[in-house]
Computed example of a mutant assay.
Amino acid sequence: MSTTTQAGASVAPAAGPDRIPRPSQGWYRVPGTDIKLRRVTTILSQGFPKPQLVFWAANLTAQDAFATLPRLVHASLRPAEKEAAYDWLRKGHIRKKDERAEIGGAVHDVIEAHVLGQPIPESFLSDDEIAPFVENFLRFVQEWEIEFEASEMVVGNLTDGWAGTLDYLFRSAPIARLLKVPPTTLFVGDTKTGGELDEKGVYPEAGAQMSAYRRAEVCWLRDGTQVPMPKVHTVGIVLHLRPEGYRPMPLKCGDDVYEAFLHVQQVAEFQRVLAKSVVGEALTLPTTSEERAA
């Protein structure tokens, strides 16, 4: 099997795990070729408006300020401490994102271990913070009769120039019944661990992300083999996983959403390249002959 790129160059099929593209600085490079594919999450982060993050960061800063008000007031009177306190306060959203990323990474490790039939690491089961996520994930799998087809699989679209790592592909008879599709229907799935169950925790860009994975042309198996992307349904499922429970959230990820993703890709490309040269130097009035003579 061979794959033809947009330029018409033939790409040899991958062989061996080291032939799977790996993300680096916003790109996936296809090993053994000169093909670079833009990372889906990078496209979305640079091209998709996220006004909710502005309010989230502002609210978090206000919460941190009131929670540590005496210490901040104390520091404000001492120049040596003021700068450090200011820096700590303004980086609250970064600390929170790092905490969430750590939890999210652990949850993805749990899911991957389960899909591969491997035991879930004891360190996760004994961790008071991680264990509730594990319990609710396993409940989701049992209650919704989840049959996983793939996990943490790299997929790509050589024509449109992007690649990404999807969370999982799966089948679920209960979900299929609710969506009125055949029980063998394959769904693309994603897991989100942010927010609260009774609040926003799943956003439309997740549908755009899954619409890209759905429209992948190729995917790489764990042995490095490059194969065509299987057909998946136009509705994807986001598992909103929290310590207090879980919600399976259906998100549209059909061709209309993918068209929006391609627009976001253009915006991201503008930010990456053209935006740097759009604004020129300020103009100054030319010097008149009288001024030159003076």
Rank of each mutant, 00 (worst) to 15 (best):
K231A: 12
G195N: 08
F187N: 02
L241I: 09
W220Y: 09
I237N: 00
P228S: 09
L197W: 10
P248Y: 13
G195I: 05
A208F: 15
Y203H: 15
A212S: 12
R214F: 05
E196K: 13
Y213W: 07
S211H: 07
F187D: 04
A208D: 08
G195A: 09
V232H: 01
E199S: 14
L239T: 14
V188P: 01
G201R: 08
E199R: 14
L241E: 02
V235F: 14
E205M: 12
L197S: 11
E205H: 15
V202P: 03
T193I: 12
P250M: 10
M229F: 12
V238N: 01
P243I: 07
M229A: 11
R242Q: 15
F187C: 03
D190A: 03
A208M: 14
E196I: 02
M210G: 01
D223M: 05
G189C: 09
K252D: 13
M249H: 12
P243W: 11
T225H: 10
A212M: 01
P243A: 09
L251W: 02
A208G: 04
V227C: 11
D190F: 02
A208W: 15
I237S: 04
P228N: 06
G189F: 05
V238F: 00
M229V: 03
K252R: 13
A206K: 08
A216H: 00
G224Q: 06
K200Q: 15
L251T: 04
L239W: 13
T234L: 04
Y213S: 01
R215M: 15
G189Q: 07
V235G: 02
G201K: 06
H240T: 07
T234C: 06
A206C: 11
G194T: 15
V238K: 00
R247F: 14
R222V: 08
